[in-house]
């Protein structure tokens, strides 16, 4: 899952960046509103972690512009603006959730998972499909009740596919979920991880749509 981190404070930014990467999210970090806007125009994100007090362009402005573009990406505001009015304004402007600094990292991660889950159109915390179940909170996967060890990269490829069965994701889209801006991408990385996943979970789960991409079928057939 790819997250855009918008945070002007250097110390907070580098800590959150490290911690989110440790949770296997692909994270891009921008430090002002204008750059956030540019990033949102050029890249597809699964979630935006947005600070409000930003140089060059206020976070609220970034949020409104983004919603005006009909971008439906979940937005989690993380700010020091604690007034009830500020929270209401943020949520009404199109934010999906609001946390106050200083926040607890575990809570932040749980809220991120909840937003990603909702964005995938589901309420249940564990993804289960065709005998394969994954729990994003605990990072545990199992096939027919048997636990399976997945690498971080395999997880990053499997989660978006399993989140929305029936939806085809291109190789480029899957690569985006894997890497932040500064990461090196090897040309056949996605194929390598798909291969590993098929080996561990069974070959029927992930289908290759030639020339288009990969999908987890909606109905097993």
């Amino acid at each position: 899952m790819r997250i855009l981190l918008v945070e002007d404070d250097k110390m907070i930014g580098e800590s959150v960046l490290d911690l989110l990467r440790a949770e296997h999210y692909a994270v891009d970090w921008v430090r002002d509103g204008a750059m956030a806007d540019t990033a949102l125009c050029t890249q597809d994100y699964d979630l935006v972690l947005l600070d409000l007090g930003l140089p060059r362009r206020d976070g609220m402005d970034v949020l409104r512009t983004m919603r005006a573009r009909r971008q439906r990406t979940p937005v989690l505001i993380a700010t020091a603006r604690d007034g009830v009015a500020a929270r209401i304004e943020g949520l009404d402007a199109g934010a999906d959730d609001y946390v106050l600094k200083p926040y607890d990292l575990d809570e932040l991660l749980a809220r991120i998972r909840a937003l990603l889950r909702r964005a995938a159109g589901r309420a249940e915390p564990v993804y289960e499909h065709m005998g394969v179940s994954i729990d994003p909170a605990t990072r545990e996967a199992s096939v027919n009740g048997q636990p399976v060890q997945l690498s971080a990269r395999e997880w990053a490829v499997l989660e978006p596919l399993l989140a929305r069965p029936g939806m085809v994701l291109s190789r480029a889209q899957l690569e985006e979920k894997l890497y932040g801006w500064k990461d090196e991408i090897s040309s056949n990385a996605v194929e390598v991880y798909i291969h590993g996943l098929r080996r561990k979970l069974g070959s029927g789960l992930i289908r290759n749509i030639r020339g288009v991409g990969y999908m987890v079928p909606k109905d097993p057939s």
Partner: peptide, 20 residues
């Protein structure tokens, strides 16, 4: 109070980073 939040938020994240 508002300005103290940022350093405190950073501290908290740094401690949690250290724990992990």
């Amino acid at each position: 109070a508002h300005e103290l939040r940022s350093p405190l938020a950073a501290l908290r994240l740094q401690v949690q980073g250290l724990q992990r």
